[in-house]
Amino acid sequence: MEPKSNYTISESDLIKGCIAGDRRLQEELYHRFAPKMYAVCLRYASNVEDAQDLLQEGFIKIYRNLHHFRAEGSFEGWIRRVFVNTSIEHFRKKSTKLSMVTEKEEGTIEDTDISALENLAEKDIIKIVQELSPGYRTVFNLYVVEGYSHKEIGDMLGISEGTSKSQLARAKSVLQKKIAQYLSDTQKSYTR
């Protein structure tokens, strides 16, 4: 995915050209945004193949719905939202139901600090996050990366706010263990 973007074309001209069906400008739109959106897809996908599928599906939606962009916010933000929603739809289709949590159980779930993430390279973080179950990974990304509230996540995924909180806490717990194992394995390889 080599960026071959021509940033001399304005966003408004790019949008108008894509809506008009100009293949050259559609290709320009792809090259301008594909690297960043691929990173979004990787965070939600279980593997590279799924991320590539999400990228393709997301751009198809972008091209089909570009006429809906109202320039009320940033164009990149609008595109990012399409990719996040595409990833959520993908999760809903492929995933089993998230485990629901009672209010009593919710009070017993501890929030885990995962500050060890700061010591890892981005590619290592993505790899570790991809190892999470689809439910944990989706809630983690929506809350930690995208900044949605538990209420918003619950509405998006059709779960309760408490279930969102518990999925995040469990995701952080699993991540903490995976990171500790990764750092331990890395440390061992350096001492050999």
Rank of each mutant, 00 (worst) to 15 (best):
K104V: 15
D53K: 10
N65G: 12
E76T: 11
F140G: 07
A180H: 09
A71T: 04
G21T: 01
M100D: 15
S95Y: 03
E57M: 12
F75Y: 10
Y190W: 14
K188R: 14
L175M: 12
S184C: 10
N119D: 09
K4C: 11
S10H: 08
S5T: 12
K36A: 15
Q181S: 14
H68P: 01
I79R: 04
G162I: 03
E27G: 04
I179A: 05
Y136C: 11
L117K: 11
P134N: 13
E131N: 10
T138R: 00
E106P: 08
T96G: 14
I109K: 10
P3F: 01
R92V: 14
V139D: 08
P3A: 03
M37K: 02
S164C: 06
A169W: 01
R170S: 05
C18P: 01
I125K: 15
N141S: 08
Y63M: 13
G17I: 10
T163C: 12
L117G: 07
Q52F: 06
R43E: 06
T108Y: 08
N47L: 05
K127R: 12
W78T: 10
R70S: 15
R32S: 08
E122K: 03
H150M: 15
K93P: 11
E161V: 10
D185P: 03
S12V: 15
Q187E: 13
L14I: 04
A180R: 02
Q130L: 14
S12G: 07
K165E: 11
S160M: 09
L98I: 13
D13Q: 09
Y143D: 02
R192A: 12
R81D: 13
L120M: 10
D22R: 04
N47F: 09
I60R: 11
E122Y: 05
K123H: 15
S12D: 14
F69Y: 15
V40Y: 05
K16T: 06
E152P: 12
L55F: 02
Y136G: 03
I9S: 00
E146T: 06
L120Q: 06
A121P: 13
I60T: 15
T191V: 14
D124Q: 05
M156T: 01
R170T: 06
L25D: 00
E11I: 13
D50K: 04
R43D: 01
L54C: 00
L120S: 05
G58S: 04
M37P: 04
S74F: 00
S164N: 11
S87G: 12
Y30V: 04
L157K: 06
V144M: 07
S184P: 05
K16S: 13
G158M: 09
F59S: 03
S149M: 05
T96D: 07
